[in-house]
């Protein structure tokens, strides 16, 4: 009834502002993609041998007479560090989320959450520094290795960095499970573990999955800390004690030295495209899984 003209105008204005924000987000993402694409396009279409790019482990972008651009070792580097990090971080993070949400008293819960937020706020250079010093020494002593900058070190550092995300999103997911579910299960005589395993985890699985995948996203995209912790040597690893180099670290380390528009410069942008695609695929999968779970 009696809605003022002004109110109607204001409402449609707000609607348009919101719509604009949404559209601009999409435009920005496309613009970034286009920019990265444009910088690498010429080389990508004219000179780059895609088979060599993906399947050669020889990365000699600055060699004087025989430049080679094979990123297999870098992909393996990123992959191995990420997988190791997730093997550590997902069980730890989800375990901690369950502990915080189901086993803690209110006081302990608050302190732990503050601690975890603190962990999340540590800048990645600092993590890299911890990798360079503390974990490096630790690995040298424990494994009697010549150097401690390797997959293991990078994996641990990345795990430590993704755990806070996994914990806080996982905890939110568990908190969102209605209390009535808990009460119903408990009234039927469920023990604490049965309650967690049979009711809470299934009810929160979307959120927990999202937590894990955001952790993966964090790990794939991380640059500075892995650059410092993995030893930064292009290498096909045989064990977690070998040094590697990741895709991200390569861009960060070499882009500044590569002359603009040189082949090397363009290849680095193609690596950027590759990273872009990887994160895109991870997010898409996450989305599809979550949607599939929801439909069922």
């Amino acid at each position: 009834m009696g809605r003022g003209r002004l109110e109607i105008i204001a409402e449609s204005l707000i609607e348009w502002v919101i719509r604009l924000c949404g559209i601009s987000a999409i435009i920005f993402i496309f613009a970034i993609f286009l920019f990265v694409f444009k910088e690498g396009a010429e080389f990508l279409f004219n000179e780059l041998d895609l088979t060599e790019f993906f399947f050669s482990k020889e990365w000699y972008p600055t060699s004087g007479y025989n430049k080679r651009y094979g990123v297999l070792a870098l992909i393996v580097g990123t992959g191995s560090v990420t997988i190791l990090a997730m093997l550590i971080a997902v069980p730890f993070g989800l375990g901690a989320a369950v502990f915080i949400s189901e086993f803690c008293g209110p006081r302990l819960k608050e302190s732990l959450k503050i601690l975890i937020e603190l962990l999340a706020a540590i800048p990645s250079v600092v993590w890299g520094f911890i990798g360079l010093t503390v974990i490096n020494q630790l690995i040298i002593h424990v494994f009697n290795a010549p150097v401690g900058l390797n997959i293991l070190n990078g994996g641990i550092i990345l795990a430590l960095m993704s755990v806070p995300i996994i914990v806080s999103i996982g905890e939110d997911a568990l908190k969102a499970v209605p209390d009535s579910y808990r009460e119903a299960a408990v009234a039927m005589g469920a023990t604490r573990w049965q309650l967690i395993r049979r009711v809470l985890l299934p009810a929160a699985k979307n959120g927990l999955l999202a937590a894990a995948l955001l952790g993966v996203g964090r790990a794939v995209g991380e640059t500075m800390a892995v650059l410092m912790a993995t030893g930064h040597s292009v290498n096909m690893p045989n064990s977690v004690l070998d040094s590697v180099r990741t895709l991200t670290a390569t861009i960060a380390a070499e882009l500044g030295e590569a002359p603009v528009n040189s082949d090397h410069y363009q290849v680095l942008f193609i690596i950027g495209l590759l990273l872009f695609s990887i994160t895109f695929v991870v997010n898409m999968t996450a989305d599809l899984i979550v949607r599939g779970v929801r439909k069922k």
């Binding site: 009460e183 299960a185 039927m188 299934p202």
Partner: peptide
């Protein structure tokens, strides 16, 4: 206490279907 609760069936005023 779990054995006690298993001895007792409880139906609350508003139905609570577990998400199963």
């Amino acid at each position: 206490v779990y054995a006690l609760r298993r001895k007792i069936g409880m139906v609350s005023p508003l139905p609570v279907g577990l998400p199963l």
